[in-house]
Amino acid sequence: MTNTSDTRCGLVVLDMAGTTVADGGLVEQAFAAAARELGVEPGSADHAEKLAYVRATMGESKISVFRYLFGEEALAQRANVAFEKAYGELVDGGRIAPIAGAREAIEELRGEGRTVVLTTGFARVTQDAILDALGWRDLVELTLCPADAGGRGRPYPDMVLSAFLRTGAVDGVRDIAVAGDTAYDMLSGVRSGASVVAGVLTGAHDGEALRAAGATHVLGSVAELPAVLRGVEG
């Protein structure tokens, strides 16, 4: 569908964990498993420092986080494999659920003729595990992880711009809306040129952090997004 209106957000790019998917702090649990794999002692100052960095960079590509924390590529890859394995096991154990109203909001957006894309900082194997666990394989037109967009995740705009290029849903980047729960989601949306960059309060970061990173709107949850977009367009 080609967008013909200067004000219509015909492409909506949504984050997953914390935005459309409630994972109950599984990132931190999976990080603990990765840290153990690399000999970081639970309760140590090193562990606390690394966990603080993980919290501060929620939304970033996880391999990028581990490259920063562990330096050597081989160590970062070991940590990432352990993280993805632990997170996948938690997902398989039924530890995730949709954010209340998320599926309905996505269906409403699609019903209005918008193209919806789901993005994540996780690897593809983990993203697919989440989609399978929720029964969301056919919910949206496209799903993207950092590897699908050249390897750089947030805060770079690459996944948003890949959604723009791969769907052909709109004529320009100003016709994109981005929603997420972290400052990195907001930075990614701003850098992509999206006209609506909505932060949601169901995940990692608070309203102050979201606004500081460039949010044009701060919402209680993604369930509010369809009405917000209609208001902007109206």
Rank of each mutant, 00 (worst) to 15 (best):
R103S: 03
E89Q: 14
A149D: 09
G111N: 03
V232N: 01
S192C: 09
A227I: 00
L38N: 04
R174T: 15
A82T: 06
P98S: 11
R103H: 01
Y87F: 15
G180Q: 11
R78Y: 03
P98H: 09
L161V: 11
P155Y: 07
L75M: 10
H217P: 03
A34D: 03
G18S: 10
K50P: 00
H217M: 04
G193P: 10
T119C: 12
R55D: 01
L165G: 14
V116R: 01
T57D: 05
D206V: 04
T2Q: 13
G25P: 06
G111L: 02
R230D: 08
V232A: 12
A204H: 12
G94V: 07
V173L: 08
Y184G: 04
R78K: 14
S195P: 00
A215C: 06
R174H: 15
A183C: 04
A133T: 10
A133P: 07
G172R: 15
T19L: 07
L210V: 09
T167D: 12
P157C: 10
A194T: 12
Y87I: 04
E89V: 09
E107N: 01
A194Q: 09
M16D: 02
T167Y: 10
D171Q: 14
L219T: 06
A30F: 06
D46W: 00
T182S: 15
R154V: 05
W136L: 08
D185H: 09
D158I: 05
S5V: 04
A198F: 09
D158C: 03
L139C: 06
L210M: 09
P157G: 10
E28C: 01
S221D: 07
L201F: 05
V140M: 07
V218M: 07
R8L: 12
G220S: 14
H47A: 15
L11M: 05
A129F: 02
G94A: 04
G10Q: 05
E233L: 04
A179W: 08
T4I: 12
L131G: 01
H217Y: 13
V190C: 12
G172Q: 11
L139G: 03
R137T: 13
E37M: 06
G121Y: 04
Y53W: 10
D171N: 13
S162H: 12
A209Q: 14
P226H: 07
R211E: 13
D158T: 06
A204V: 11
G59Q: 03
V232S: 04
G180K: 11
T119H: 01
E233I: 07
G111S: 02
